[in-house]
Amino acid sequence: MSEAARIHLKNAQGRHYRAATAFRWGALITGGALALIGLSKRSKSGVAIATAGGLLSYAGAKAGAKQRDLIARSSILLNCTPEQAYQFWSKFENLPLFMRHLESVTLLGDTRSRWTAIGPLGKRVIWDAEIAFDRKDDVIAWRSLPDSEIYVDGIVKFRNAPANRGTIITVVVVYQPPAGAIGGVLSRILGKDPSFMMRQDLRRLKALIEAGEIPTVEGQSHGPRSSVAAFARVLNPDDPIKGEGNLTDIANARRRAS
């Protein structure tokens, strides 16, 4: 990463982007993938974050702007090969199995897909996305189509972990909620800390791939609960309740993971 970019990054995101983050992006870039993607243009915003340089200049451009991007970023070690991890992720229909805010992803063609996110009270946000870059067993980048209601750019990178410990995946997704109702729903879905949500998602992915199922205590027996605690749980915005479908999801996930 160039020194200029580093400074950009620092200034732009302040406390969000620390040295470690710059380092992580550095690692992605030296992976070579992003350089290959080339600069892509975003008609509405001129944003091109599918490139590393793009993200940086984007971050720079956003500094001082009213609208805040929501950045979800995390990584996790998976006890499988990069090929297996890539295979699972590259089927975008699999993502709702572990990304709790996603209700579905359906394919619209070879590179296009429709994403439905679901938030508190069953409010939905829908957007179409396309694959921006795809290199087998190494990296996948996607972005929402220019005329979508929200902007989403995501990238996942698969790397061999040292000493045959499996695969380290690093994921960054940048959301730009529009002003108004849809933006509000999206912000509620992602919560105060989108990276926290991503961490939970990746942990579910890890359990799914390694253990074949996602650990749960939903639906187990218990004695009489206090109504206060039950109320608090309903109100907790960081833990959107998606409904009853947990077991089917998990059963499906298991089938697909194996």
Binding site: A211, G212, P215, T216, H222, G223, P224, L247
Partner: peptide, 27 residues
């Protein structure tokens, strides 16, 4: 079934609760 439930500090009671169900494939 019968189960010992934690109902608060120094408060244990034996309650009648639903029998447990399989929730995950490896249960």
């Amino acid at each position: 079934m019968k189960a010992v439930c934690w109902m608060g500090t120094e408060k244990m009671t034996v309650e009648n609760v639903p029998d447990p169900k399989i929730l995950n494939p490896r249960d």
